[in-house]
Nucleic acid binder design. Sequence first.
DNA 1: TTGTAAGCGTTATCAC
DNA 2: GTGATAACGCTTACAA
Lengths: 339, 339
Amino acid sequence: MQKPEPDPPTLTTVARLANVSIASASRVINGIKTNPETLARVSAAAEAVGYVPNAAARSLRSRRTGQIAFAMPDVANPVYTAMVGSIQQVARANGSRLILHSTDGRVGDELGFLADLKQRYVDGLILCSLEFTDAHAEAIADATVPVAVIGNPTKGAKVDTVRANSRGGAAEAVRHLHGHGRRRIAFVNGPEHTAPGTARKLGYFDALRACGVERDDELIEVADDFMIEPGREAAERLLARTTPDAIFCANDLLALGALSALRAAGLGVPSDVALVGMDNTNLSLVTSPQLTTVDLGSGERARIAAELLLARIARPTRRARSVGVEPRLVVRESCGAHS
Amino acid sequence: MQKPEPDPPTLTTVARLANVSIASASRVINGIKTNPETLARVSAAAEAVGYVPNAAARSLRSRRTGQIAFAMPDVANPVYTAMVGSIQQVARANGSRLILHSTDGRVGDELGFLADLKQRYVDGLILCSLEFTDAHAEAIADATVPVAVIGNPTKGAKVDTVRANSRGGAAEAVRHLHGHGRRRIAFVNGPEHTAPGTARKLGYFDALRACGVERDDELIEVADDFMIEPGREAAERLLARTTPDAIFCANDLLALGALSALRAAGLGVPSDVALVGMDNTNLSLVTSPQLTTVDLGSGERARIAAELLLARIARPTRRARSVGVEPRLVVRESCGAHS
DNA sequence: TTGTAAGCGTTATCAC
DNA sequence: GTGATAACGCTTACAA
């Protein structure tokens, strides 16, 4: 059986077969009210030839692609995959496809994707940026399609935004440690030039102040990246010079690294050193002890961002909205729950 | 400052500004050889107005979208996010965008995406299917764009394929356990109607036979899903009726669940019960003890699938290729490495 | 209600 | 080399 490979049927094919104009065929396909008889004829014809509308032609005319994009730092990080899942759901419910861009946190890549929007291959973009610069604000301002930001845009930026309160969350984590009798509370942070790095450090200080604990820079260590291995290395450096009775890590991955360093140093968790992470990734459930952490609502923030974006795509003139999602402490074995 | 919101510049805009025909403008934009002077004029004009070609118009004419899609069971599963990462890289190097579809392993969804290809919103699809049916083969056969499958297509299906050898990998895992003196080797499987479920069970039997160990159905337990919680429950059922000296789990997530059940039962790993998982997800590094596992080359398989797909998009008439990726045992603390 | 026809922004085939 | 011009497949005034 040789492939005949006939060109795919177009509206013209259908119209001809149904003996109507291509306009009528189009109306039927788009569910616009028509005479029952033509409707029947066209539907039958479409069915018969297996007609499916061509996406490119449709977008060209309608100026809608039915696609949205999500630009995120790292496909392998559970925080972001949680976001992908939420966005996927919203998009699908909306009949939209999802394009995934990976930025590795590089500002240049983010700006590149923003610029590419001019190609109009999507109806809008959700940008999850770790480091929002003026260049971002500018690029968004002259983007031709709506953008929603998950993160912390610069002050002036007029853009739909979903923020986490990671400063507050960090403070809550540290207060929790203090509440459990810890007094030498160390802090393992990620790169401090990032928005999360900055905010979480401030939260750490906030809590120390609130608890009346004096800040001790010896207890602070910065990892190269918000990842497991850098977390382990940072914790090793920390433990080489001092022994805290608690470590707050700026995210779960760092905490996993720290856990491994603590174990290697023969320190018990939480008996010797309590440990709290941040993000409530599914990783925090698989460690032993299970990790106490702060849920910053990644999935929910992404869902909201997607909804804001779709709303703006529908009504581009709405005023920019900014939504905050509050953190939630999740107490597990590494501090607070009986292990 | 009010937004003037001028329509985005088109080729016509550029051509007019450069005082050339739109054909010449097009040539310059597409890097087709032209007189240096017109080239300069057009480039300058394009630059001046910030011209960017419209994706929809381009695809309509050229019948190329510059997009590929990846349909996978679960965005949150590290095995698949590893695949996403690889595909993303290949796509990007090729100048293609990546569309992500999530199927939750539902056959109906997979078939739906296959059918949607007729809209031609992508140049091709990579399908990672857990359960490949005749309907899949049929849908692929009359798809209008190339498809590459990661998994095990039915025999007759003419489609580019990348297979893992999970049967062989499972056998290797079990032989490894046997080699470390384990004789009561239990097996926690996922749903057996899936391709991985079937293959891994066969591998388990293969190894028992090879090692001269008699098969004991009491040592086999099936989880509802390839996830942590079902894994824990299955392991609990297993431990309620017998005590093995090793458990082989059909993937890492199941192994994490089993680990937690073992811990709850007061059994030491690997002292009392050795444990081996499968997939070599990054999760296997964060447990304590770290998990011995079998790497089925997810990232590599995805990379190969992407390359096969792009190759076929470039030359649609090539014969279908089938590539196998061999498993690799990764020895860590839960069996074989000193903990 | 239905048909005619004008684009949407490109690319590609022609003559020139 | 360059410029008209005809598609690509569809939506949508507007006219009938």
